Amino acid sequence: MRALRITLILLVVLGGLFVLADRVAVGFAEDEAADRIKSTEGLTATPDVSIEGFPFLTQVVGGELDDVKIGIKDYEASTGGTGSSADTIRIDDLDAEMHGVAFSGDYSSATANSATGTASISYAELLKAAKPEPVDVGFGIKTQVTGLSDGGDGKVKVAVEVTVPGSKAAKTLSVLSSVTVSGDTVKVHADSLPKLGVQLAEGRIRSITDFQQKIEQLPGGIKLDKVEAAPDGVEISVKGSDVRLVG
Rank of each mutant, 00 (worst) to 15 (best):
L4F: 15
R5M: 11
I6E: 06
I6L: 13
T7M: 12
L10V: 14
V12D: 06
V12K: 12
G15V: 00
G15T: 00
G15Y: 00
G16L: 11
V19M: 14
A21E: 08
A21Q: 12
V24H: 14
A25E: 07
F28I: 04
D31G: 09
A33G: 03
A34I: 14
A34M: 14
I37F: 00
K38W: 09
S39T: 15
A45M: 01
A45R: 06
A45G: 00
A45L: 04
P47T: 08
V49E: 01
S50A: 11
E52F: 00
G53Q: 13
F54W: 03
F54H: 00
L57P: 03
T58Y: 12
G63C: 06
D66H: 04
D67G: 03
V68Q: 03
V68C: 04
V68N: 03
K69E: 15
G71I: 02
I72R: 03
K73N: 05
D74A: 08
D74L: 04
S78H: 02
G81A: 14
T82D: 05
G83K: 00
S84A: 12
S84I: 07
S85E: 13
S85F: 04
A86Q: 08
I89M: 02
R90K: 14
D92S: 13
E97F: 01
G100H: 12
V101Y: 07
A102Y: 11
A102W: 11
Y107Q: 09
A110V: 07
A112K: 05
N113P: 02
A115K: 01
G117V: 02
A119W: 01
S120Y: 01
I121V: 15
Y123Q: 14
A124P: 11
E125R: 01
E125C: 00
L126I: 06
L127R: 13
A129S: 08
A129I: 04
A130C: 09
K131L: 05
P132S: 10
P134G: 05
P134M: 05
D136V: 12
D136R: 09
V137S: 01
G138I: 12
F139P: 07
G140Y: 12
G140A: 14
I141D: 11
I141R: 03
K142H: 07
V145E: 05
V145I: 09
G147K: 15
L148N: 07
G151T: 00
G151Q: 04
D153L: 07
K155E: 11
K157F: 02
V158M: 12
T163A: 14
A170W: 01
A170D: 02
A170L: 04
K171V: 14
K171D: 08
L173P: 10
T180D: 15
G183C: 06
D184T: 04
T185L: 00
T185P: 00
K187T: 11
K187C: 10
P194E: 09
V198I: 13
Q199G: 14
E202S: 14
G203C: 14
G203R: 15
I205F: 09
R206S: 10
R206K: 15
R206A: 10
R206T: 13
I208P: 07
T209A: 04
T209E: 07
F211E: 03
Q212P: 02
K214N: 05
I215T: 02
I215H: 01
P219W: 02
G221W: 05
I222F: 01
K223M: 10
K226Y: 09
V227W: 02
A229D: 02
A230M: 10
G233P: 09
S237W: 03
V238M: 12
K239D: 11
D242Y: 07
V243A: 05
V243I: 07
V243Y: 08
R244L: 04
